[in-house]
Nucleic acid binder design. Structure first.
Lengths: 305, 305
DNA sequence: ATCCATTTTTTTGTTTATAAAAAACAGTTT
DNA sequence: AAACTGTTTTTTATAAACAAAAAAATGGAT
């Protein structure tokens, strides 16, 4: 019943590893592979068996040898390596954010299950977890109801975000000087500068960097509720910005500059400067999101016609 | 598969209603009963059928008449009227808060299912929903892990609570004068005064009043994240204080007085006074919780020996 | 004794099944 | 036509089944 996504993902990851390894070289022990591949030994063993069956490795369990380098066709296709829950998340977020769902609309679990081609339990499980993001609400013994991805939602989200992040930023700035986070900050700073130079080629990467930076700041709060709250931001940004490519390059450039200013302020350890830089960055982030919501609801309205 | 808890609960509620109604009086229509009993018409009809079978009502669907008053034995026992999920919540909270779970302990879904005598799906569903409260955490493809109901948890909880509630309280105080919430506040005030007089008899009710008061304040924020956050507070307080009866009377008396002061401050609409009253109340609430955690972990340690 | 491979046991992820409850539909009566 | 009851269809809550994956126990070699 359970899919084989973990196995396939681990298999692909192993192939990745074998590409760079020398032929006829013995593989590391199962225990070591387990750690490297981040799966259980049971799965690793299954992967090794499969590799043997496909003659990518030879010998016996005691000492596997690399027989040949893997070919692109050896890999399992990407879509077979995503878990049901990840699929549901992706499909649900599309359905939710692109489908122009209005506040008060009802979520029909059965219909979603049919539409997404997964079981109703997968939907139920997802909705239960998703409810904490404040976009849906449950009525007991009845269906879920949509609260709407609206301007109000974005404003409420950012109200909390500001509250949390200014507090975190101050906590960050007042950390002991020999906290390892300062080093992480410096590393992020240089990544920002690097990205600024090559922005034209890979402005994709900004999203990643953005998340890592803000998470670093928020983690300084040492408060699980603040840290966890970033999951919501992260999810919304991840899915929402995928479809809003307008001015992306410019937006990202501006954001990087703001981040650098923010990093400077943190390094100065001056609370006033920190709050200022933080607020000013979050303000423009909010503007971007709000603009983006307008664009989205307009295009959704178009599609409906 | 599904239990009949909704039916039984509705049945009991209907009996409650029939106690006060006159004999030989026709019952309201199904639609009206549906609204009053807060269940679907399907359930209401099933209840009516059962009442007829037991000869508590007579006649036909067109016009049911009260045949006799219900006896205490007619009621379904209380434990049959709680849904599985409510049962799981209760049992899980006991297990969690009284069992002296330590950070890093692993939650075994299968074992919990056996222990609580429910299916694993019920456990899964609950854990998923419960995860937002920050007491447990999921590791993918593996079990849930406990983050611990510790001093740290309480402090983190209260950090957010203060952040949220001071903001809400200010929003409350700066509401338009003709907002209906002012009336709710006045009503709560008089309930507080009433409770203060009879505190000796029913200091149970304080918990209820406390929740209603704080929810009213938090709702003024008009922010779903703030409003929803109160669910955590509410859950923790509900279960945690059930077992900490030491000095309860005194504590509640003090809290009522603080509430009254807080209400006064709100009524004055002076932000400074509001913040002061709010903070001072939350400070003592935190102290109470922290003291209570110490007591609990001490007694849990005793039990272990 | 320590490390590693094999085997066995346990636990989790997902689907499927089914009764309870809700909702929709269709006539009837007032 | 509004409000009611009878009937049918949908949807949800929960359990149960089962394969995948993880974890633990076992045994063997260095």
């Amino acid at each position: 019943m359970r899919g084989e996504t973990v196995f396939k993902k681990t298999f692909n990851r192993t192939l990745e590893y074998l590409i760079t390894s020398e032929l006829k070289r013995p593989l590391p022990s199962e225990n070591i592979l387990t750690e490297r591949l981040k799966a259980s030994r049971t799965t690793v063993r299954k992967v090794l068996e499969e590799l043997h069956a496909r003659k990518i490795i030879k010998g016996s369990a005691a000492k596997w040898l690399v027989a040949r380098h893997p070919k692109p066709t050896d890999f399992f296709p990407d879509n077979e390596t995503v878990t049901t829950s990840a699929q549901v998340e992706k499909k649900f977020m599309e359905w939710m954010l692109r489908g122009d769902r209005k506040a008060g609309d009802i979520v029909n679990g059965l219909e979603l299950a049919r539409q997404f081609e997964v079981s109703t339990s997968a939907i139920r499980e997802y909705l239960n977890r998703f409810s904490r993001f404040g976009l849906i609400e449950r009525r007991p013994n009845s269906s879920w109801i949509i609260r709407g991805f609206t301007k109000e939602f974005a404003l409420e989200l950012f109200e909390i975000r500001e509250l949390f992040e200014t507090r975190s930023a101050i906590a960050f700035a007042t950390q002991s000087e020999n906290s390892p986070t300062w080093q992480s900050l410096r590393k992020l700073e240089s990544e920002h500068r690097a990205l600024l130079k090559t922005i034209s080629n890979r402005h994709q990467d900004f999203s990643d960097l953005d998340e890592r930076f803000h998470r670093l700041v928020n983690n300084a709060s040492k408060n699980r509720f603040i840290v966890d709250f970033y999951d919501i931001i992260s999810l919304i940004f991840h899915y929402h910005y995928q479809w809003n490519k307008v001015d992306e390059k410019q937006r990202n450039r501006a954001a990087i500059l703001e981040h650098l200013d923010y990093i400077d302020a943190l390094t100065s350890r001056d609370p006033k400067r920190v709050v200022l830089a933080c607020m000013s960055h979050l303000n423009s982030a909010r503007k971007t999101l709000l603009a983006s919501i307008n664009v989205q609801s307009a295009s959704a309205a178009d599609q409906q016609q």
